[in-house]
């Protein structure tokens, strides 16, 4: 039971971070379908940090891994920002391409790193068994609850995101750019800058979400798998949360719970007795968000101008 709680919290942390990323990007008016790819790149950055600097003291390890993952995510998200804000490219194509590019690039990089150490090891896997213990604090005896520092980081970021979005000038301006960019521009807000900021914040959070996902539950990761659709699940969380941080957190807990059920259902007797294939638990979050969409889209709280390139000449 504790295991279920632990996995629910871990998966929810990932979903909260990435969905908040999507939330910032969409509030600025850019649909970030490339979150899945951003997660992969962030995860790659963090995993490589652990791979090349295995002997850092725990505190420094946590800080370095988080910082590098976020930076890599930020840089990767610039691909979307440049294309969709400066060149008015189709955001759906660019986002889709970014997801494919991230998996391919991460695989190529990891294989190159692995075979440079040992020419006979061209695998796409990175191991960080020892290093990841830095993130974990065991509570109780072995087999008990494992607290993960990422959970705390997530809570801090959640509060910060709420304050940034609703209580600061920046956040309110950002949201104006996603609702009606021309109106925002007419009062002197630089829409291009704001949209760049929105996408870059989503890159920061997406990258962090990526490393939290691969480092929290596993001690190695095969990068040719990408992040198994978690970026898209985060998009579902964002929609279910109606683009609001506090609701996103609740939605993430619900979806994280289902995901955790699909991972640990064998370990819990009464769930095992139900004998439901784990595919069903994996499917449920998507079905729920589809139903929610169907019921609420008419009065959806989605930013009105999302997905539409900003054109100064339009009214």
């Amino acid at each position: 039971m504790l295991l279920l709680l632990q996995y629910t919290l871990l998966y929810s942390s990932v979903l909260i971070l990435v969905a908040l990323g999507g939330c910032f990007s969409e509030h600025s008016g850019v649909i970030n379908l490339g979150l899945e790819g951003t997660m992969v790149m962030g995860a790659l950055g963090g995993a490589l940090t652990m791979h090349f600097m295995p002997n850092l003291p725990p505190f420094l390890m946590i800080v370095m891994v988080i910082l590098i993952s976020m930076t890599v995510g930020l840089i990767y998200s610039l691909l979307l920002a440049v294309a969709s804000v400066s060149f008015k490219a189709d955001q759906t194509i660019v986002g889709t391409a970014m997801n494919m590019l991230a998996v391919a690039a991460a695989t190529v990089i990891v294989k190159a790193v692995n075979s440079s150490f040992n020419p006979n090891n061209p695998s796409a896997e990175l191991k960080y068994h020892e290093q990841r213990t830095a993130f974990i604090v065991r509570i109780g005896k072995s087999g008990g609850f494992e607290f993960n520092w990422f959970m705390l980081v997530t809570v801090i970021i959640l509060v910060a995101a709420y304050v940034l979005l609703y209580k600061t000038k920046f956040g309110l301006r950002l949201m104006a750019c996603g609702e009606h960019p021309q109106a925002a521009a007419s009062v002197g807000i630089n829409v291009f800058k704001m949209r760049y900021a929105g996408v870059m914040i989503s890159g920061l959070l997406g990258g962090l979400g990526g490393i939290v996902y691969i480092a929290s539950a596993d001690s190695m990761w095969k990068f040719s798998n990408g992040v198994l659709g978690f970026g898209f699940l985060a998009l579902a969380v964002m929609i279910f949360g109606q683009w609001k941080p506090q609701r996103i957190a609740l939605a993430a807990l619900v979806f994280g719970f289902f995901r955790a059920l699909s991972s640990v259902n064998v370990g819990i007797d009464f769930i095992k007795a139900l004998n439901i294939p784990d595919s069903v638990y994996k499917m449920l979050p998507y079905i729920i968000s589809l139903v929610v969409l169907a019921l609420t889209s008419k009065k959806s709280r989605a930013p009105k101008a999302e997905g539409i390139p900003y054109d100064k000449g339009m009214r």
Partner: peptide, 26 residues
């Protein structure tokens, strides 16, 4: 040559091509 490069390099190239397709209008 698998000893030096990985076969995913072709996925990399095709995904870059898709990314660039976003710029076709431009």
């Amino acid at each position: 040559d698998k000893m030096t490069y990985s076969s995913e390099i072709s996925d990399l190239i095709s995904s870059i091509i898709i990314y660039l397709c976003g710029f076709v209008l431009f």
